[in-house]
């Protein structure tokens, strides 16, 4: 049986910054439980001797020369912003402390 509880779903939604209604928490708990039970089978074959693959085609040392290139203008940057003051993006008050 899965370890997905409504409390865990709420915690994950908070980490992912997604508001959920109580109904959504309920349905996601069931759905995620079923999915997790199903996908957990990866650990059956993932033995310690098998290396992990993070990139399908192995490449290394892909660099960009340190030369200024394409940028966007302030106007372009702000054009799609929900709110701005003419040069900066505007957001409502931030809870808590500086990061």
């Amino acid at each position: 049986m899965s370890e997905i509880t409504p409390e865990l779903v709420e915690h994950l939604a908070n980490l992912a910054r997604i508001g959920l209604t109580p109904e959504e928490v309920q349905s996601l708990t069931g759905e995620l439980g079923a999915i997790v039970d199903s996908v957990a089978k990866v650990s059956e074959v993932a033995t310690p001797d098998v290396p992990a693959t993070s990139h399908p085609i192995p490449l290394v040392n892909v660099f960009r020369p340190d030369v200024p290139g394409e940028t966007v203008t302030t106007e372009q940057a702000l054009a799609m912003a929900p709110e701005h003051d003419g040069s900066r993006f505007k957001v409502s008050a931030i809870l808590g402390e500086e990061q």
Binding site: V39, A40, V42, V45, A46, P51, A52, T53, P56
Partner: peptide, 10 residues
């Protein structure tokens, strides 16, 4: 989960 999945990829 994620770590095992990357191994399955191998």
């Amino acid at each position: 989960y994620y770590g095992s999945a990357q191994k399955v990829r191998t």
